[in-house]
Amino acid sequence: MPSDREGLRAFYVEAWRKRREGLPAEPLEHQVADVIAQHPEYHDLLESGPAALERDWTPESGQENPFLHMGLHLGLREQVATDRPAGIAALHRELAARHGLHEAEHRMAECLAEALWLAQRNNSLPDEVSYLNALRRIRDAG
């Protein structure tokens, strides 16, 4: 997957185009297209051509960045698949059983986003213990 913003966004657009057109895709493209399929509110954007690659979403605009949102889903799924940090797969199963997969991932993504933001702010690695504790609080809150 590309590491620059435009390349990454183009990857999402292409994965979605392949899904819509029934074309062969790489495994990672399938994963991205699966997340996109769960977010119909982003379909028009991903089908809009260059606008999807160039637009900025800032906190001041009050709009969520769809690429960040979908990336958090993908990141969570990778964490669950590898159970890293240890215990996240079980928490994911519990939350998905209680709230459904998509809603569970949305709740968990908030914790992941905060952990990543704190790590960036502190110029450090994400604090896995604090992250797991935040996920446990969500689980325990019902």
Rank of each mutant, 00 (worst) to 15 (best):
E47P: 01
S130T: 08
P85I: 13
L116A: 08
R77F: 05
H99Y: 15
M108R: 02
G71Q: 01
R98A: 15
E114W: 13
E60A: 15
Q31Y: 11
L46D: 03
L8A: 13
E47H: 04
A113E: 07
W117I: 08
H102L: 08
A115Q: 06
R137F: 10
R84A: 13
R19Y: 01
R84E: 10
A15K: 00
P59D: 06
E114R: 15
C111G: 08
E128N: 11
R19C: 01
E60S: 13
A33M: 02
Q31D: 11
L28I: 12
V13H: 04
Q79A: 14
F11W: 03
S3P: 09
E54C: 10
N123V: 09
R121I: 04
R84D: 10
G71K: 02
A25D: 04
M108L: 10
G87S: 08
E14P: 02
R139T: 07
L46T: 04
R121C: 04
A37Q: 03
P40L: 11
S61N: 12
P27E: 12
E60Q: 14
E26N: 08
R139D: 10
A104G: 04
L53W: 07
A51L: 12
P59S: 09
M1F: 09
R19V: 00
L46S: 04
D4F: 09
H106E: 14
R98N: 07
G87N: 08
V80Q: 12
E41G: 15
H69Y: 03
D34G: 10
E41V: 06
P24E: 06
A81H: 06
R5M: 14
A119F: 05
R17E: 00
Q120P: 01
L112S: 01
L53S: 15
P59W: 05
M108C: 05
L72N: 02
L132N: 01
W117D: 07
I36V: 14
Y12K: 00
R93T: 11
